[in-house]
C-alpha cells in the first residue's frame, strides 16, 4: 500500500484538527452509536446547514462582491462525481462522456468521463466553478491540469469498491501536496449498497495516522442538499484559509 506523505508535523496536525473542528463538530462520545457502519463522525453545524439551504441571492453585507471559487471533484471510478456535478450545477454540465468499454471494471456504467466536466452553482454569495476529474487512473494527468488555481477539493470515494482505504490512499498520495496547502473534504459515497465493513471512523483514523486532518463525511451524490452541505463546509474552510481569520 502506498503511504500518504507523512512529513507534516504533529503540531501542524493538531492545529489543523482544531481549525477544522470549528466548522464540523465531532460527537462527544462514540458509545451511543449502535451501528458504526452508518454513524456520521462529523455533523454539520445547524448554522452551516442553514447557510447551505439558503436560496436567497442577496449578499449578507450590502455591496459585498460575489466571490469566484474553483473547486475540484476527484475520486475513484463510480464514486458519483458526475452524478454530483449534475445534481448541483445550475447550468447544463459541460463535459465529455465516452461509452465504457471495460464495463466490468467500471461498475457496469454505461459511460465514463474522459476529460473534464464543468458545472456552476451559486452558494453563500459565491459562484462555485466545479470541475470534475475522470476516475480512471490513466487520466490522472487531467487532475494535475485542473488543480492549477483551485481553491479547494472534494475527494469522493466509493465505499462499495474492493479496497476503499487503498483507493483513498491513492488519491491522497496523488493530491497530497494540494491537500496540505488547500482545504479539502473526503466524501464517502455508496453507503447504502456497500459490500465492505469500512466505517467513517476507519477513514478518519487512517487519515489522522497519515497526517491529514481532512473532515470525512458520508454523501449521497444524488442528493442536492447533501452536496450543498459538503460544499458549504468547504467554502467556510476556504474563506478561513483566504482571510486567515478564525471563525467563531
Amino acid at each position: 500500500m502506498q503511504q500518504a506523505t507523512t512529513s507534516i508535523s504533529a503540531v501542524q496536525i493538531a492545529h489543523n484538527i482544531e481549525k477544522r473542528r470549528l466548522f464540523i463538530e465531532k460527537p462527544q462520545s462514540q458509545a451511543h452509536v449502535t451501528n458504526m457502519k452508518d454513524a456520521p463522525i462529523y455533523k454539520t453545524r445547524p448554522a452551516v446547514l442553514q447557510r447551505a439551504q439558503n436560496q436567497d441571492r442577496t449578499p449578507l453585507l450590502k455591496g459585498e462582491p460575489v466571490k469566484e471559487v474553483k473547486i475540484i471533484l476527484a475520486g475513484n471510478v463510480g464514486s458519483g462525481k458526475s452524478t454530483a456535478i449534475r445534481a448541483i450545477s445550475e447550468i447544463p454540465v459541460i463535459g465529455s462522456d465516452a461509452k465504457a468499454i471495460e464495463r466490468n471494471a467500471l461498475h457496469n456504467k454505461e459511460s465514463t468521463t474522459v476529460s473534464i466536466e464543468y458545472g456552476m452553482a451559486y452558494l453563500d454569495n459565491s459562484n462555485l466553478h466545479i470541475y470534475s476529474t475522470p476516475g480512471q487512473r490513466r487520466f490522472d494527468f487531467m487532475a494535475d491540469v485542473l488543480c492549477k488555481g483551485a481553491h479547494g477539493m472534494v475527494v469522493m470515494i466509493d465505499n462499495g469498491c474492493r479496497d476503499p482505504l487503498n483507493e483513498m490512499d491513492y488519491y491522497l498520495h496523488q493530491h497530497g501536496r494540494f491537500l496540505q496547502n488547500y482545504p479539502g473534504i473526503i466524501a464517502i459515497t455508496h453507503f447504502d449498497d456497500n459490500n465492505t465493513d469500512t466505517s467513517l471512523l476507519d477513514y478518519s483514523t487512517y487519515l489522522l495516522k497519515h497526517g491529514l486532518a481532512c473532515p470525512v463525511v458520508s454523501l449521497d451524490a444524488r442528493n442536492t442538499l447533501e452536496i450543498k452541505q459538503v460544499l458549504m463546509n468547504l467554502l467556510l474552510q476556504i474563506g478561513d484559509f483566504k482571510t486567515g481569520k478564525k471563525r467563531a
Binding site: 465529455s96 465516452a98 474522459v114 476529460s115 490513466r138 494527468f141 487531467m142
Partner: peptide, 12 residues
C-alpha cells in the same frame, strides 16, 4: 498514457 491522451483530445 498515449491512449488516455488520445481519448481526452478526442473528447475535447
Amino acid at each position: 498514457f498515449l491512449g488516455a491522451m488520445g481519448a481526452a483530445l478526442f473528447a475535447f
